[in-house]
């Protein structure tokens, strides 16, 4: 390729920076690329096949926004910086982690993202679950406990527990470290991927896990309630309680969801039941709610169908890889 044609080609691309929970990468996109082209390239770089859980997020006017995969990147309201910045994050959560996450990379990215949500208190977690989760996170990072290596203080620089938990007890940092280390020592023999899976199995039972909350109301000008969308369905909460829903509708209970401007409408399958109407703050919020409902519902249906050939291959490869690792782990 001549320098001239190379230069010409270079002008037809733009730079993007992708930040995942673990790493960063810089990629070049062609000017007419759609979201999907970039998303596929990122997944390829990460060697990630369970792509359906993830999305690319950017910040638009202070609001976290998901990149639309079927539209051109440069036609979306992505801040025009050089490079354009995106975060590669889990957008949808499995109903059951041990039955739906197969690749180590998928599981690892979920583990890192959920751990951050718990430590940042986006997911509220009891003190006892926080300690047990911390002990599995330590096992995943440090491997088997060895008192000669893991001496008191080895966790002093680690962020182990949510601040809310620390404030509930009169315990020094050393006392917390000691408690977590005692439980960490119990996990001897558990490999990194197993420790991360144990972490996720506990986390998925926390009430706020995988929930997307939106302020809604029953009248036009209030926002006294919350609507939660997750892998199982939609949930209605009072504004000050994100834990226990006032009412839940599983995907199987809902016939249709639609919106008109700020009004959002759920039609139940039960023809005798009344249509449920809510108002949200903006039409854009309704658009996002509808999008999350459709995608979560699609995943819900896909999981209940016979596996595609691609899915069968992913499961087979993951099984072989796990068996190989287990053998290696036992040999060591």
């Amino acid at each position: 390729m001549s320098i001239r044609s190379l230069k010409k080609k270079q002008q037809k691309t733009f730079k993007v920076k992708i930040v995942t929970m673990e790493t960063e990468m810089e990629l070049h996109c062609e000017m007419d690329w759609k979201g999907n082209d970039l998303f596929d390239l990122v997944c390829k770089h990460l060697v990630l096949k369970e792509t359906w859980f993830f999305g690319l997020q950017y910040m638009a006017s202070g609001v976290d926004t998901w990149l639309k995969l079927d539209k051109k990147i440069l036609q979306q309201d992505v801040p025009k910086e050089d490079p354009l910045k995106f975060r590669f994050l889990a957008k949808f959560y499995p109903e059951n982690v041990s039955e739906e996450l197969f690749q180590d990379i998928t599981q690892h990215l979920f583990f890192l993202q959920v751990k951050k949500q718990i430590l940042d208190e986006e997911i509220i977690c009891s003190p006892e679950a926080s300690v047990l989760l911390a002990s599995y996170a330590v096992q995943a990072k440090y491997g088997n406990y060895n008192p000669n290596i893991h001496q008191p203080g080895f966790l002093s620089q680690e962020e182990l527990l949510p601040k809310r938990v620390l404030q509930q007890y009169q315990m020094t940092s050393e006392m917390w470290q000691e408690k977590i280390t005692a439980w960490y020592a119990e996990h001897r023999g558990i490999a990194r991927d197993e420790a991360e899976m144990n972490y996720l199995k506990i986390a998925q039972d926390l009430d706020m896990y995988g929930m997307n909350y939106f302020p809604i109301s029953q009248t036009k000008n209030d926002s006294d309630m919350l609507l939660g969308v997750d892998a199982k369905g939609i949930h209605i909460y009072s504004r000050n309680n994100k834990i226990s829903p006032l009412k839940s509708f599983k995907w199987g209970d809902i016939r249709n969801i639609s919106y008109n401007s700020k009004k959002l409408k759920f039609t139940p399958v039960d023809k005798k039941a009344e249509t449920i109407k809510f108002y949200s703050k903006e039409q854009n919020v309704n658009k996002l709610i509808l999008h999350l409902c459709i995608e979560n519902h699609n995943l819900f249906l896909t999981k209940r169908k016979v596996d595609s050939i691609e899915m069968q291959q992913i499961k087979m490869q993951a099984k072989e890889e796990r068996a190989r690792k287990k053998n290696e782990h036992q040999r060591l």
Binding site: S126, P127, E128, A129, V131, L132, Q167, Q168, Y169, Q170, M171, M175, K179, W183, E186, K201, I202, D205
Partner: peptide, 27 residues
Amino acid sequence: QPAKFAPYQKALREIRYSLLPFANESG
């Protein structure tokens, strides 16, 4: 539907009891 935290309930209970003596009164 299995109970929440099913295989971990014993560990969670043990941790909860071990933390009790250190709980702040307000907590």
